[in-house]
């Protein structure tokens, strides 16, 4: 099974990196499963909002291919600025999190479940960015 990381990192079947990834097949399965659950699951956050936040997190992590993947399905919404402000803090300054930041999301109309989805989405994108950076390094080194 191949996942989005294989596609974006250009990992060819039978290559050295393909062989390294094949040692942990559950990682590929769970990355694919996470992508489906986060971007295709039912949520109070629209699909377009989720992709717009994902695009921004990829950009903050300097991952243009990952950003482009999400840009295709991203669109703005009235509350998107509030979602992006939270995503930026989570990505760049997670030590500055406060209960007030979570409260601001509730005031923007997010249910607890939507706050969980937003946080999981941002956390997942930060995971994906580090995986892509690692594959580039291992390919070159």
């Amino acid at each position: 099974m191949r996942d989005l990381l294989d596609e974006l990192a250009g990992i060819q079947p039978g290559s050295r990196l393909d062989g390294l990834r094949a040692l942990r097949p559950d990682v590929r399965a769970a990355v694919a499963g996470s992508e489906a659950a986060i971007f295709e699951g039912e949520s109070g956050l629209t699909t377009e909002e989720r992709h717009a936040v994902a695009q921004a997190v990829a950009e903050w992590n300097d991952e243009p291919a990952l950003a482009a993947h999400h840009a295709a399905r991203a669109a703005a919404s009235p509350r998107l600025p509030a979602l992006l402000a939270h995503a930026e803090m989570l990505t760049k300054r997670p030590d500055q999190a406060t209960p007030a930041a979570v409260q601001a999301l509730a005031e923007a109309g997010l249910a607890p479940r939507d706050v969980v989805m937003l946080s999981q989405l941002v956390a997942h994108m930060n995971f994906m960015a580090r995986m892509l950076a690692t594959f580039r390094l291992l390919e070159r080194a």
Binding site: L23, V122, H124, N126, F127, R130, M131, T134, L138
Partner: peptide, 24 residues
Amino acid sequence: DAQILDIAMSVAMFANANRLMQTL
């Protein structure tokens, strides 16, 4: 290299885990 990838995946996973634990 397989071990280096494992270390890197642990870092990637905690880029995720820290952000959930710290901000929720």
